[in-house]
């Protein structure tokens, strides 16, 4: 029972980070109907930038976290400007954007390799104080609590921003109909750039949390989460922010439960991705997805 309880708790933390990462994919997809495949590389850059700020610049993680998150956001602006804006008027913009964003990902990964080397690195010991609680046989660390609090805070802020803020309403308007948004006086190109900033900042934040949680960072750490993130947004419903949050949790829980039940981690990914097929059969538009209607 305690093993199961422990795994559920672990699944919650891992799932929370998947959610944070996947929300970035879904934001850009919701606005542009386009997948930004440089997202996982920005996730990596966020984690490595925080590491550099802590290790080489001597900042505390509390200062490094927001700075590295902002830097990831700026990388998102760069991805938009270099990989997407020049292609926007092309008739094959969906496909060519996909390819050029992969190119950006490769460039980021190579730069990271050049700067940090091709091996695993970690935050210095004591970056986050090690505090451990035991509650009825379930172990929870201070780091886990901080990660979950950060994820929840960022998600609530994002949801409120989209719901109530002027820029949030503009993002939703652009997502629904770019022509209508333009006629309302919304600077559509500016809103798209801001969406990339937001999406990438969240992805970078996920990278930092991931590096802290697994106590390991590397230039290719984005690879395994890239596909999981895509699975999460399909699971939750393409373009739906609450869907990405739920999908991330479902994915994280399915992973740890598989390990708990089967006793090994061999089947972990197989079960998680099988769940993806099951959801697609039962609810083709995802858990919270709606049949999106696009204008002709």
């Amino acid at each position: 029972m305690n093993v199961l309880g422990q795994q559920l708790v672990n699944g919650l933390f891992i799932g929370g980070m998947y959610s944070l990462f996947a929300v970035g994919y879904t934001l850009v997809f919701g606005v542009l109907d386009i997948l930004n495949l440089a997202h996982a590389a920005v996730f990596t850059m966020g984690g490595l930038a925080a590491l550099w700020l802590v290790q080489s610049a001597g900042l505390s993680i509390w200062a490094a976290f927001p700075l590295a998150t902002l830097l990831a956001g700026v990388l998102g602006l760069l991805v938009n400007q270099v990989a997407f804006v020049p292609l926007r008027r092309r008739p094959d913009t969906y496909f060519s954007g996909l390819i050029s964003s992969i190119a950006m990902a490769i460039i980021f990964e190579a730069l990271a390799m050049q700067i940090f080397g091709a091996h695993n690195v970690r935050f210095p010991a004591g970056t986050v104080p090690v505090v451990i609680w035991r509650l009825g046989g379930i172990t929870i660390t201070l780091l886990q609590v901080e990660i979950l609090a950060t994820v929840v805070l960022l998600m609530v802020t994002l949801t409120q921003l989209l719901k109530r803020a002027r820029i949030g309403k503009a993002i939703r308007a652009v997502a629904e109909n770019q022509r209508a948004a333009r006629l309302l006086g919304i600077n559509v190109d500016g809103v798209i750039a801001f969406t990339f900033f937001l999406s990438s900042a969240l992805g970078g934040a996920a990278g930092i949390l991931f590096g802290l949680y697994f106590d390991s960072l590397s230039p290719d750490m984005g690879r395994p989460i890239e596909l999981k993130g895509l699975a999460v947004i399909v699971l939750g419903g393409m373009g739906s922010v609450p869907g990405a949050i739920l999908g991330g949790l479902a994915f994280g829980l399915s992973e740890v439960l598989t390990v708990a039940i089967s006793g090994t981690s061999n089947l972990r990914d197989a079960v998680a991705f099988t769940m993806l097929f099951a959801i697609m059969l039962l609810r083709p538009s995802g858990i919270l997805g709606k049949g999106r209607t696009r204008e002709a």
């Binding site: 309403k169 939703r172 209508a180 309302l184």
Partner: peptide, 15 residues
């Protein structure tokens, strides 16, 4: 070209 997924009020606010 009303924004179908948003409320009447939100459409007016965006105007």
């Amino acid at each position: 070209l009303v924004l179908a997924g948003m409320s009447v009020r939100e459409n007016l606010e965006l105007g």
